[in-house]
Nucleic acid binder design. Sequence first.
DNA 1: TCCCTTTTTGACAACGTTGTCTTCGTTCGG
DNA 2: CCGAACGAAGACAACGTTGTCAAAAAGGGA
Lengths: 356, 356
Amino acid sequence: MAKTTTHQKAAAVRQRGVTMSDVARHAGVSRTAVSFVLSNRENASISEETRIRINDAVQALGYRPNAGARALASQRSDWYGLVTEIVTAPFAVDIIKGAQDQAWLDHRFLLIAPSDQADAVGPNQGLEDAATEKLLEQRVEGLLYAATYHRGVHVPESAHEVPTVLINCFDADGKLPSIVPDERAGGRVAVDRLLRAGHSRIGVINLDPHIPAAIGRLEGAREALAGAGLELDPELVVSGHATADGGYEAACQILDRYPQQDRPTALFCLNDRMAMGAYDAIKERGLTIPGDIAVIGFDNQELIAAYLRPKLTTVALPFEKMGALGVQTLAALTAGQPITADQQLVDCPLLERSSV
Amino acid sequence: MAKTTTHQKAAAVRQRGVTMSDVARHAGVSRTAVSFVLSNRENASISEETRIRINDAVQALGYRPNAGARALASQRSDWYGLVTEIVTAPFAVDIIKGAQDQAWLDHRFLLIAPSDQADAVGPNQGLEDAATEKLLEQRVEGLLYAATYHRGVHVPESAHEVPTVLINCFDADGKLPSIVPDERAGGRVAVDRLLRAGHSRIGVINLDPHIPAAIGRLEGAREALAGAGLELDPELVVSGHATADGGYEAACQILDRYPQQDRPTALFCLNDRMAMGAYDAIKERGLTIPGDIAVIGFDNQELIAAYLRPKLTTVALPFEKMGALGVQTLAALTAGQPITADQQLVDCPLLERSSV
DNA sequence: TCCCTTTTTGACAACGTTGTCTTCGTTCGG
DNA sequence: CCGAACGAAGACAACGTTGTCAAAAAGGGA
């Protein structure tokens, strides 16, 4: 009696407790059969008829497998955890998109946890550790760490308990595999584009020269120039704060430093925000883009690049691809496959618009 | 003997199988005691000493509760599902941020699933249904739907099985509670700001006049003008495509239509992208901002508003707040509390910068 | 010492699956 | 009509918890 009461109460409280047994009962078969059909196993041996009966029962009852129970019993969750500060500083959201789409394709679920590792390597790992811990409690099969900008990071200790891949950042301790943009090739592509348009005197508006993005892109620029038998004039490289204002000031410096005939005819801005400022500096001086000065950016920040007038030709960071590749790499790792390289470089494609 | 072998094998295969029993054994107490301590229950009656012993054991063994098992046994997952196209079209990422932060505070986990409901009401619900279904399989306790732009949506049938809240959109069928921006108040605030700066002849660059944002903001503008004894001159309202180009064209129309003395001295652009275009139109005509023409935007798209020169004064959409409020509302619903209104309006704050 | 309270234990059933094994009918070919 | 071969059923242990309960042990006061 007491037992019955308990059951009824539970049933009343539960929103929708259709279990495999219910399906089996409704289809007039055994639980075993249902389990076989639903996870359509190899060593099947289920007649087409019962298979259909079971599927019908699933439909009729609106049965939904319980992911948690399945994970518990089968000891695999099909979940990956993604720790990222991107949600906080949504510059690289496309990483999430790429990762999520890929995970979806692989029938895996991405658990996204926030990180506040606002910047760099420092042990500001309060939230980050907690996030990792929470994800491991959910028994994720692997971890991804994604950063808003390309840099070295330290990952919490516990991340080493499961396969882990870094996206748009790399392990400062050099132990974990990572996916990063090929900044160098990107810089080369940008400057090549300018060279191809006939420019040979090219000003460069640089970022903080110590970050990987600046180092790689500048190196690429040098290579491209070298390919054309030219050298990068150090005088034409001006660093600025990575904002529109910074770009504006840097552009003013470059433009005002020389008489007209010596003035560079093109500017390579190491990010789009600075290109935005450079536009203003150029226009202010009554010069036209790309007529008098060609401008090429980097990052392909849609809101800027596609809406500047004229629209900005720029090199895109392959966020989406990196996200997808991260998940693929993780999938390989969790499947026990060895991965080839610890650092995978992803191409930065040129986006032609109208500023060159 | 056979049993021992099995255990060893299991332990070898499992990555890290520390269970509650292990903790109990290590602490020299019963499982029950451990369970009591870890979920620190009311009817406890556990001595301080054993409590400490248990916590030490947890530390020592690196025990991590298995969330899935806990969910299974306790019939509550502490998970909310968030279905959104925001990741695809990352205009309103801050909704995710707000929701996630709030969920974190409430010790709940947000499962984010992608929706491709790229636009509007239509039954393009392939992925969306699938996402909802997946989330329900994970036994989420409630669902959130978030849209990139304020509009009416249809939600999959199965969403009605658990408490559901809409963010930045509303149920076209009028059944589900929603959180939306107070567009009207926003429009009022914007125009009030212009009036306060002494402008009385105000041009309006409108969005597609049928969407909730346009309707509300325009209505608010009218109210503000009425408060100053003015009326909205229909001639001064020009609709354009919601892009920089659209804004540019609309601004040209407004600016060129009148001789200088009749020209509006301020423009209210219903979004920042159009304000960006308007800037160009104004500057092209040799006019200054805000000297000759004041400009006020809407949306506060950081990349634009904060980087335009001069920086754009605009009205912000309260994405983050809406996200947080959505989670709070959902928490109230799942806790069985009745909620007050089916549609909660959230204020759109004015962000003063330098264009007025 | 005895009773009463406070801790603590042990046992057991649930939760919804997976996975393995044995058994039991059928049906069919020979 | 016998033995395969196949399809399916049934039983059971496992997964790691929660939750409930009765009962045992430890301590304290009179």
